[in-house]
Design a protein around this nucleic acid. Structure first.
Lengths: 112, 112
DNA sequence: TCTCTACCTAACCACTTGGTTATCTAACCG
DNA sequence: CGGTTAGATAACCAAGTGGTTAGGTAGAGA
């Protein structure tokens, strides 16, 4: 995996377990134990997933006695949304119609 | 890497070379040779990247004599955009204000 | 037919990933 | 103090990734 921020974010999101963790954290902070609960997977495995999310800046781990409360930080997703938006015209029908319109305008220009 | 569609798409996007290929294809179809040109990397390496993009459904490879013209198919990005949008309220200020407003409304309800 | 070009597959390499179990630290609780 | 709980780390393993070189296939063209 490349180490530029966008690649790191995309790589972190390329796993259903990690996306489920983010979905859970969207409802509020949670401990590692609480996050592991839904998964048929050992503690260390979840811990590794959290580390990937943390390195991507999507999760922040605090500390409260023996608990490590995790919170969501969605700011890296903003870049993802912006990147994806650059391709919106390739699937969004309304944008496609605008493109076609601009294309016709351009052809008219060329006819002059 | 998990094999669900969204994970496959995210994994395909987690590489700057592959995103550069998509950016190039956004300007129109291109042969494998044309796509390799900007990269200091062997042909087979680019071919592998194309296979990853193809498996993710982001690129379609046709054939025209000895050329394999590649075209962009952005439909998998729609799911990416929709998934990401579910977290927009966590970084978008306008949404954050709307959330705060709805929260106040909810508290008023609770006071009744 | 002979050659060149475009592209693919195969085999190999170093490194990463996603999981495991076993072991360690740190904090609470009796 | 001793036991329990939350969690991290280490060591290991199978599989995947991103690159390489070497060699093969298919079509264009002299």
């Amino acid at each position: 995996m490349a180490d530029d921020p966008l690649s790191t974010t995309f790589a972190a999101l390329a796993d259903p377990t990690r996306r489920a963790i983010l979905a859970r954290l969207a409802e509020g902070a949670a401990t590692v134990k609480e996050l592991s609960a839904p998964f048929a997977m050992s503690g260390p495995a979840v811990s590794k997933h959290l580390r990937v999310l943390e390195r991507a800046g999507l999760v922040v781990r605090g500390r409260d006695a023996q608990w490590r409360p995790c919170t969501l930080d969605a700011t890296p997703l903003r870049e993802v949304a912006e990147w994806t938006d650059g391709y919106r015209r390739f699937w969004d029908d309304s944008h496609r119609r605008l493109d076609a319109y601009l294309e016709r305008m351009k052809e008219q220009e060329d006819d002059h």
